[in-house]
Write a protein that binds this DNA or RNA. Sequence first.
DNA 1: ATGAAAGCGCTAACAA
DNA 2: TTGTTAGCGCTTTCAT
Lengths: 353, 353
Amino acid sequence: MSTLSQVAKHAGVTAATVSNVLRNRGRVGEETRRRVLEAVAALNYRPHLAARALAEGRAPTLALMVSSIANPFYPEFALAVERAARESGHFVIICNTNEDPLTGRAYLEQIAGTLSEGVLVMNANLDFDDLHRTQSGGTPVVLCMWERPADPPALPCVAVDFELAGRLAGEHLIGLGHERIGAIVGSKPMGIHASRYDGFADAMRRAGLEVAAANVLHAPDTVQGGYAAALALLDRDPGISAIFATNDLPALGAIDAAADIGRAVPRDLSVVGITDIQLAQQWRPPLTTVAVPTVEAAGLAVSLLRELIAQPASLADRMRVASEPHLIVRGSTAPVNRTRAANAACPARPSPI
Amino acid sequence: MSTLSQVAKHAGVTAATVSNVLRNRGRVGEETRRRVLEAVAALNYRPHLAARALAEGRAPTLALMVSSIANPFYPEFALAVERAARESGHFVIICNTNEDPLTGRAYLEQIAGTLSEGVLVMNANLDFDDLHRTQSGGTPVVLCMWERPADPPALPCVAVDFELAGRLAGEHLIGLGHERIGAIVGSKPMGIHASRYDGFADAMRRAGLEVAAANVLHAPDTVQGGYAAALALLDRDPGISAIFATNDLPALGAIDAAADIGRAVPRDLSVVGITDIQLAQQWRPPLTTVAVPTVEAAGLAVSLLRELIAQPASLADRMRVASEPHLIVRGSTAPVNRTRAANAACPARPSPI
DNA sequence: ATGAAAGCGCTAACAA
DNA sequence: TTGTTAGCGCTTTCAT
């Protein structure tokens, strides 16, 4: 690895000049520029990023805090983040917290401000105090997927209307004639799935329907978690004709669970999720779900972070709202099968139809 | 962010002493140490990673080059890499090449040696010359999953016996009585799936069976790719009773394709893949596959890289061989269904049983 | 046991 | 247009 001054010597100029031609700063003579470029090529020179970062007082990377990159949702997001980050010349460091706030804190303390210029937080279950501390330490932080646009957090964020997502899911099911519906709610420690359920419950209420407390279960955000929860739900109340899950992975598990106990999806049970991860369309049957603008959110998060880096004082307009979630109907939902439902149990209330 | 010298001033000592205290280098008086630690806490001091890197002449990160983190296989690997990297105090920068050698080169040129101390290459379709160049530039490179242990590459690597994997898959199918078998081979530009097919073909040959050239198709490493290939395979030769895919994703697609044209898996068609990604066990039916030691390979790759970083001159022993792949029988394979096969077409040769 | 000083590779005033 | 000079925050001899 050759250095700036080696290049300078080779070109018969000074380091500052080389720096200038490389970054198109200051005015440089045509002939000089040529010689410098020649030297750069000859010595195969590459700027030392750490040195540059130190001199500029900035850092060349962004940190992406995520609970676990192995969860199928995050890679899609991470890919979009990386793409956006490159445009501003940043690299991205992937920080798996495994849902452990202490791991998250360790990451923040180590890299914030010294290696990473900004921090993107994607459902990593971090301590809010830790995040505030890094922010007041001068390293901007943005929450990548805040679930309640109407209720902005104390940190900059990209918001997605997940309550609407829940409502759309509920309305879809209701429109199909379903009345007795079970719910599988993510059990994230931060309770971030509450608004998704609220939207769903609200749709139910407006339709004059209610969800029995016994018919809402919490489950981890995995296929297995949804599988177990669906089994439990269907066991407690076989009269359920549909299941709403606050996330795709558990919804996928619910589909499998239904199949395993002989309830065909969507004929004997409808299932709907939220997010629209890639897997959703590959499942059998493909999952009806409410799509969330993942890639857009990633882009917004990065650009917001860039702004905050550029002018840390900009306290206003700290929230970007991504476009609205929308329903994608696939093969996991169908009109309620009254015969099947009647066989299993009596309806909870008279049919509104 | 406070600096070393601020801490030093606060503690009434010099920066060098603080540095010594923090890194347990040199002898430091008990009382002094106490005061320094106190100052560190009071000022909430964190070492500046870029500055340290510059002073030490090393870099705090490892680069993980991957074709696309959105491919479900890589996240599992990336998670393991990050875990291992943290143990040596490294952060990992995720570099998606999108199979484009130019993107890969750009990454290498930018971060190798200046921001990353080493490079891990995971099926990123990089130019070998580029890799050699970064290696001779002083930044160690290791290939994370070399497919032919018997034929070491010119770069340090972790090898997994994928030929064996292919053979195991083939033997499993043959043991089940399958004789006419289709193959879906990954179409990676680097041809890395050739050895997988070789192992399979070898097993066939030993059993006195042959694979018609028309029955081997290339396909991209996706569910969709496998779906299309399986459809084509089954259309060309309906007499096929099993499909071997060199990767899990296409195998999964093949299962779906079979189902869609009314061939039940495994009753009317057996399907086997290679890798054992998490999805394999979640599919319906769950995929029989040859498991490859992903996490182990990640650990080996990182530790090899660490060694090379520590002593770049160690030219010997540049290959680590991970443990052998092993068959995992799940629900996608079953004994050949002669009735079904006979209906579809005549067997290619007399049954050896 | 602690301090002084140089330097990692680069950028950024300011001079010339 | 180009060179000089500091200095980013840290580590590391070498003195003391």
